[in-house]
Design a protein around this nucleic acid. Structure first.
Lengths: 104, 104
DNA sequence: GAATCGCATAAGTACGTGCTTATGTGTTCG
DNA sequence: CGAACACATAAGCACGTACTTATGCGATTC
């Protein structure tokens, strides 16, 4: 039941904010905290949850740990969503355009 | 913050099971309970959560209430996912195929 | 219209989760 | 090597959440 991981991970607004910040550019845990009013342990715990959900991956760089979006998690969500394509409304223009891009 | 609703709704495995069952065919609350070992109030509460997340919609039919998948919620998830298309891996073959279908 | 059925809501409870403070681990630098 | 730094982990606590039992409410049936 891997779906449990990413849905649970994204159910928390703070974690979504962290993920969104990483999507704008990879950075280390300290940089992530800037402007977020979150303690260091809390950030570390959130990153651990996002990591186990494969939404984020880490890379040690000296004494810093750089974090970046892990495509694996997004792929899993996409696959989950794909199961219900029969119910996708016509107006999901965003996905249509995206897929066209990917086919090129 | 509407994203909160559907991510939180899908974070529970029981609710995902209910949603999945409805995706296979719309039915009323009693029919949903069959083979699920879940009390009637619990089912009702789960359906209320799915409803407020726009993942499911109801339709009164006599003294039954028929439930079906609401495309609105799926569209919201798709829109959320689309924001991170820059990170979609090449191997999301499933979505590629799906979008081709939709473009026809 | 009274009983029954399908479902929703109320209230209480056990457990999960996100936070805190405190401490540990690995890395760099003087 | 020892101090400082970046981060992870531990333990405890307040709160949210998913369940339970009990009851309410609309619709059907006799």
């Amino acid at each position: 039941m891997i779906e449990n991981d990413f849905f649970r991970a994204l159910a928390d607004p703070t974690r979504r904010a962290i993920f969104e910040k990483l999507a704008a550019g990879s950075m280390n845990a300290s940089a992530l905290r800037e402007g977020m009013e979150i303690s260091q342990p809390a950030m570390s715990q959130h990153l651990a949850v996002l990591r186990s959900a494969k939404l984020v991956r880490e890379e040690r760089q000296g004494r810093f740990v750089n974090y970046e979006v892990d495509p694996d998690g997004l792929a899993l969500i996409a696959q989950w969503l794909a199961k219900y394509r029969a119910y996708w409304p016509e107006r999901i223009a965003a996905l249509k355009v995206l897929l066209k891009d990917m086919d090129q």
